[in-house]
Design a protein around this nucleic acid. Structure first.
Lengths: 197, 197
DNA sequence: GTCTATAGTTTGATAGAC
DNA sequence: GTCTATCAAACTATAGAC
């Protein structure tokens, strides 16, 4: 109460939580997202496994924090980006940033966009962040004249297909993602053609 | 030795193996591919868990048999199909059959095309079957004038993206797959345009 | 080929002292 | 908040009798 700035305790705690989450990502990169265990995480943090329960009430809660963290960072990246005025160029730049971010970290990509942990489902709060990400993409497509839900669905599925093929068959390479710009043109042309016949 | 046709024992055994694999798929449909355990499988077969080791030397060997089984059935389906003479129609019919087959069974789709069991990797023999499936697709694309590796990659990734979105977000529905024919046209037109400028 | 019995491991989670 | 100690559960796999 005395000499302690209001919220300082909470801040300390939040910093510790962030550190644990960062270490969890680190461990996931070494052992795979499926190889992440509370024992292993505690060992890397230099504490004992039960101590983690002071921060996360279950393993799923840890996954949820990681899921939220990944989406928040992606959102930050998308929002920090200075986009070209031309809507089509903006879509390309935006999707390029998206793909780069996603491919930079395999386990993060898996946790955010695949379902590598069958027992884990994000909480409503965390899921809302994922919807925000999708909202950014949709907004940029809309600006480029893509408004039809079917066109949006196809576009998103195409990007997801590229990312998935890339990370599954050639992580670190560009065999699939190098076609991104061309395919964006293809999809946008087609959508524009059909929406203004 | 006497009165026993040559190979009859092997046949009986193969039939039993096939029965076990079929039951494993059945169980996977009920419990999820991740919920498949040797105890549960044995229970459904009316035997005890260690008895399974008379047929499979490990759980991964069971997964491998399932993986091979799924690919073999898909291959049969693709080969049994009577295709239109027009190459483009043939591609469409072929991919429609592919998507229908794949979406008809969620856990099979997961085992064949995703990586739901991190510890499982198919044996060389089983993987060859998966390559055969891809070979069929490539042959039909080739007949329709798609020969460039990049174009093939994009096409395959697009179909995979549709399937994945469909099964993850709307299993049993057609929100994504209904665009298949249109997208086939889009990709084929584009590939043809660039290969014969 | 099937059984009983059991080993051996891994892992998430809780109780309670400090 | 961190510790020790421990639980409980689930599961793969093996040994050896029949």
């Amino acid at each position: 109460m005395i000499g302690t700035p209001a919220g300082a305790v909470a801040e300390r705690r939040a910093a510790r939580v962030a550190e644990i989450v960062a270490t969890a990502w680190e461990l996931a990169r070494d052992e795979g997202i499926g190889g992440l265990t509370l024992h292993g995480l505690a060992r890397r943090l230099g504490i004992r496994q039960p101590s983690l329960y002071a921060y996360f009430e279950s393993k799923n809660a840890l996954y949820d924090a990681m899921f939220a963290d990944g989406n928040r960072k992606l959102l930050e990246r998308l929002d920090a980006q200075r986009l070209p005025n031309d809507p089509r160029r903006a879509v390309k730049a935006s999707m390029q940033a998206f793909v780069d971010f996603v491919l930079a970290d395999t386990p993060r990509c898996q946790l955010l966009f695949q379902r590598p942990i069958p027992t884990f489902e994000p909480s409503a709060e965390s899921y809302a962040l994922a919807e925000d990400v999708l909202g950014r993409v949709i907004a940029r497509l809309d600006a480029a004249g893509v408004e039809d839900q079917g066109d949006i669905d196809c576009f998103v599925a195409m990007v997801a297909g590229l990312v998935d093929a890339q990370i599954s068959n050639d992580p670190g390479g560009t065999r699939w993602t190098r076609h991104l710009d061309r395919l964006v043109d293809l999809y946008l042309d087609d959508a524009n053609r059909r929406s203004t016949p």
